[in-house]
Amino acid sequence: MGTEHLIQIRRDLHRIPEIGFQEFKTQQYLLNLLNQFPEHRLDVKTWKTGIFALVKGTNPQKTIGYRADIDGLPITEETDYDFSSEHPGFMHACGHDFHMTIAIGILTHFVKNPISDNVLFLFQPAEEGPGGAEPMLNSDIAKEWKPDIITALHIAPELPVGTIATKPGLLFANTSELFIDLKGKGGHAAYPHTTNDMVVAACSLVTQLQTIIARNIDPLDSAVITIGKITGGTVQNIIAENARLEGTIRTLSVESMDKVKERIEAIVKGIEIGYSCKTMIDYGSMYHQVDNDEMLTREFMEYISDQTSYDVRECTEAMTGEDFGYMVDQISGFMFWLGVGSPYGLHHAKLQPNESAIGVAVDIMCKYISYKANQ
């Protein structure tokens, strides 16, 4: 499949972003592409809004897995593309349109150029939430076709095209959503002494939460609590009876995640007592850290450095979350960053990755997977 065809696929997918487990158009578009291949070379099975696609090897001794996430984000696009999102309020602002297209390019290569081993492609829904990797991996299809190793990539807007970056060991953090609801007693703004103001309680809580990072986490470790949204009250002259905090927790160790949650619960209990209110905590979706297999990652980096002209860099770990972590927790594998040279970053409404990076990724992964099949 030529580069121009792949770019058109990316643009088609960019037009139809859908959020987690609602990727119906995306799934159908991908199925239409996959159904063009002969059945004796490709076995396709659907799972919820995702897809398993097994490219059959000529003499398989193992199965090599490749994951591509397929969902979009609830972001209103602000690019000047003539192929911008046709779904108002939604955008492929994390590059999953690239991820799917690259997977199609790799899959096409191995359908047309058979290798000895099987190659399993997992088109995974709901990476941005509520999380599709863990249930997809626990499905009966995955158990039947479980790969021996697994790989994935993520676009990196800050890196130039032709560059990849990864590292052995911890690459991405443990992450958890955080929702805290406060319920007090509302009333007239002129009579605050008869109420329990949840706007005041919420403001106090935000400040106290930040002390967890400063005073309860080892300074040589890393953790972040972000409160990205606060809602409360109804109008300006009524004291708020309810307030809600929404945010995320990110840590570089499971132990720190447990410690942060323990301290959140203690502080929220103190808010209950101090502000005479009721509270509820919900951790929402939680993602396991991406811990790259040491040997496989080193091997991959050395292979790309020695056998290709691409720039390979060892990066530092990032506080970003990726539910691919559940896959490498059960299967030896790794993830890497793919440079796409965009002036705007991930989750930005103006993200515009350089489409020439698609061919780079397809070339890299076709060469590496062929190399692994010959081992």
Rank of each mutant, 00 (worst) to 15 (best):
D311M: 10
V260F: 07
I180Q: 08
T63G: 07
G321M: 05
D69W: 08
G162P: 00
N138W: 10
F52K: 07
P168R: 15
K185A: 11
R15Q: 15
D80N: 13
I225L: 10
I141Q: 02
L30A: 01
I51W: 02
K146V: 14
W47M: 09
A223N: 02
Q22K: 12
A152Q: 02
E144C: 13
V119H: 01
C94H: 04
E77Y: 01
N174I: 14
G57Y: 02
G65R: 15
G169F: 08
K367P: 05
T207Q: 10
H193G: 06
D293L: 12
V224G: 03
L209R: 10
G345L: 09
V362Q: 12
P125Q: 05
L209C: 07
Q27C: 03
D282N: 15
V200C: 03
H96V: 03
I104Y: 02
D329P: 01
I70M: 05
A93R: 12
A152I: 07
Y368A: 11
S332L: 11
G339Y: 04
G57N: 08
S332M: 12
E317G: 10
E322K: 12
Q236K: 13
A53L: 10
I9T: 06
A373T: 11
I115H: 03
G50R: 09
S253G: 03
V111C: 00
D291S: 15
E78W: 09
A189R: 10
W47P: 01
T63M: 11
W47H: 09
Q307A: 07
R10K: 11
A133E: 06
N118H: 14
V224D: 02
I273K: 10
V161M: 07
V312H: 07
E317L: 13
I104H: 01
I115T: 06
T175L: 14
F21S: 13
S176M: 12
I51T: 05
T248Y: 03
S342F: 04
P343N: 14
G325F: 02
S309G: 13
F90M: 12
H14I: 08
H188D: 05
F37V: 04
Q330W: 03
S84E: 13
L182T: 07
K56C: 00
T194K: 15
M335T: 04
G162Q: 09
K350Y: 09
L13T: 01
I364A: 02
Q28Y: 08
S309M: 10
K259H: 02
A165E: 11
Q61G: 12
E355G: 10
N174G: 10
I213T: 04
G169N: 05
T108W: 04
F37E: 00
G233N: 06
F334S: 05
E177Y: 08
M301G: 03
M335W: 04
H109F: 05
